Amino acid sequence: MNALHANVAVVGVGMMTPLGYNATTSLAALRAGVSALQELPWLDPDSGEPLRGTRVHLPHWWFGTGMLADLLAPSLLECFQSCDLDPRTIPVLIGVSRRDRPGRPIDLDDQLIPAIESRLGHRLHPSSQLVAGDQFGPAYATAIAAQWLEKREVQRVIVAGVDSFLCTETLDALMAAQRLVTASNINGLFPGESACAVLLALPGSAPDEIVIEGLALTKEESTIESDRAFRAEGLTQAYRLALEQTHCTLSEIDYCLSDLSGEHYKFKEAMFVAGRLDTKPRAKRMELWHPIEFLGEVCAAVLPCLLAQARHAAQQGYAPGQRAICHLGADSGERAALVVRAYQIAEEFV
C-alpha cells in the first residue's frame, strides 16, 4: 500500500442516514449539530438499560441484504440524477463490511447488487462491484475509480458505502469486546447505519466540485485488537504520503474530517499524528470534524460521508478554508488519508 495519484473531483453526492433521507437534509443536520442518537431495542446485559445508537427509520425495518439495498438505492439515485449520463454507463463501487465481521449477511456478496438493481429498475454498469473492508473499502474504491477516470475508460464513477451495526450478532461481538458505550463503559462507540455515495469525475467537470489531490493507503500493525505498542505509524505514514502529493504540510491544512467514533484508540491515533506533523505556527487552529458523533458508527459509509460534508461546507460557505484532510482506519489495520481542496468557497449566508 502506498501513495496514489488521485486527482479526481467530487461532483455529486447522495445520502440516506439517521439524520435524513437525502443528502440535503443529512448535511444540513450535520452542520447544525443535530444528533440522531436514541435508545435501541437491545439491552445492555450488565445494567439492563437500552443500548443507544442510531437507525434509519424505514417503512419496514429488518436486517439483511435487502435492508442495505433499501438504504443504498436512494443514495445512488441522487448521484445518478446529478448528471446527464445514462446511469448504466456509470460504474458503482460499493464499500461494505469485511467478510469476517460477525453478523454480516451471508448473501451480501452475491445479492446486494441484484437487490439494488431491482430497486432502481435498471442494471448497473458491468464493472460495478463490492469492495469489502469496513471503513477502508471506499478508500480503496476511490483509488480504482481514479485509475478508470484518468485512463478515460469512463466519464463518471460512483464510490459508495453502506453498513449497519444493528444486528444482534454484531452487537453481541462488540459488547463482548467492550467496544459499545454503556452505563459502565465510556470508551466505546454508538452503533449506527447509513448509506452514502459520491459521484467522481475528472477535475473541471463542475463549478462546485472539490478535488481529491492526494490519496495514501497504508497499514497499521498495532491494531485496536493488538497487544503491540501503539505509535500510530500507519496513519502518520498515510498523512505524510498524501501531503507529499499536494506539496503542502499539515500546517497548511485548514481542517480535518475523520472517522473518530468515541473510542480512545482513534483519538490517541489522531493526537499522535498531529503532534508529529502539525509543528509549524498557525494563524488559526485546525478544526477537527467527526460526523460519527451525530450519525453513530457507520463504518463502510464514513468516507463518502466525509467527502460529502467537505463539498457541502465549500458550497454553503462554512468551510474553514480551501484545504482539508480526511482520514480513516479499519479495525484490521488499513489506514487512508485524502487531501481535498475546494477551489471555490461560497460566501456563507448568515
Rank of each mutant, 00 (worst) to 15 (best):
R311Y: 00
V8D: 04
G33Q: 07
I158W: 00
A308S: 15
Y140L: 11
L27I: 04
Q322H: 14
R285W: 00
D134I: 03
W289Q: 14
A238P: 01
D44T: 14
L288G: 05
W289K: 15
K151E: 15
R88L: 00
A232H: 08
V56T: 11
G333E: 09
Q245Y: 04
L338M: 15
A23G: 12
T236K: 11
I90Y: 02
R311K: 14
S332I: 06
R285C: 01
P102F: 01
L174H: 13
A177T: 08
P102C: 02
E117T: 14
L124D: 10
T218R: 06
G64E: 02
M175K: 07
A141R: 07
A336E: 03
A206W: 03
P91E: 07
C248P: 00
I253Y: 01
Y343M: 11
L130S: 11
R240E: 12
I144Q: 13
K151N: 14
L189M: 14
G53R: 01
T170G: 07
E347I: 13
L124M: 12
V96S: 02
N7A: 11
L174A: 11
G14Q: 03
N185G: 04
M271T: 15
L124N: 12
Q111T: 12
R152H: 12
T223Y: 04
Q309R: 11
G14Y: 02
Q237R: 13
L19T: 12
A342I: 08
L77Q: 15
L120G: 13
E213N: 13
Y140C: 05
E233D: 14
G296V: 01
A301K: 07
G234V: 03
L71A: 02
A143G: 15
F349S: 15
E209A: 12
H60N: 02
R52A: 08
L19H: 08
R119M: 10
Q38I: 06
E221L: 11
G53E: 03
A132K: 02
Q81E: 12
E244N: 09
L68W: 00
S226G: 02
G188R: 05
V159M: 03
A29M: 12
K268R: 13
H125Q: 10
P114C: 10
F165P: 01
V273I: 07
S261M: 06
V8W: 00
G317Q: 02
P191L: 04
A36M: 06
G317R: 01
